[in-house]
Design a binder for these strands. Sequence first.
DNA 1: AAATTAATGTTATAAAGTTACCTTGTTAGC
DNA 2: GCTAACAAGGTAACTTTATAACATTAATTT
Lengths: 134, 134
Amino acid sequence: MRDKQHLKLSKNQALVYEALSQASKPVGAYDLLDQLKAHGLKAPLQIYRALESLIELKVVHRLESLNAWTTCCDADHDSAPIFVICDDCGDVKEHIDTGLNRSIEKISKRSGFTAERPIVEIHGRCGDCSPKTN
Amino acid sequence: MRDKQHLKLSKNQALVYEALSQASKPVGAYDLLDQLKAHGLKAPLQIYRALESLIELKVVHRLESLNAWTTCCDADHDSAPIFVICDDCGDVKEHIDTGLNRSIEKISKRSGFTAERPIVEIHGRCGDCSPKTN
DNA sequence: AAATTAATGTTATAAAGTTACCTTGTTAGC
DNA sequence: GCTAACAAGGTAACTTTATAACATTAATTT
């Protein structure tokens, strides 16, 4: 998505999107709720509804293995996002790799499967937190 | 794991493993609990603990995007498992693909990352449930 | 048999997500 | 301008998923 700036978001959508943008890592729904209580939000559903629509707009992703959400990187992606997650510092980076996406297609087609929503989340240690021995 | 048969499991581990083996799809923790109440299990924690140890023994996998667990296929895998999940009939197949695993390694190494737990779960439609038009 | 470690049992609680129902805004057609 | 139709929002209650805390029992090692 190139023109996030030009998206017309509703009040709740904008609040949730802003909060996610400013975070340095993925944020959980109840954390978002806590933050946004100051802006008048009161119930989980308000958060979940905003998240759902932001995902539909393709400006937010859900991280399945973290139960958390993050803004989409700017890459114009037709291919599926790949998340690289540091279990030490919590940093998450979004990558696009067409090679990996091709492998996924090949694997699924091989068994007559139609891939609609590939989830790739790689847990480990980032460079900064890397295995002590180095 | 080649010799699941030779594993010495505790009572609860064996019950949970049996239940998962007999299921045709991944099963949630509370479903397992319901089934195993007949065998005397009473609390969620008994299930979660058994699952945790079975995962450590590498005979069970957790499907992050389903909040459910399934037995590991027999493949002797050093590489990460790839799950292909039909959102229609619920069928899940475990694949091993060293090519995809190499891509994951490449992507992570490129950014100085050490991959420890790659999660790949591909949602879509299996051959039998495939897009209506065919 | 004592020591150590692995597995269990139970209660209570936390965290994540959904259902149901009703109200308010916005927009389009008349 | 009125109103039908629809999208977005508000609120409460509830379900589902997962853990914490603490006490007990079984198995294994020395």
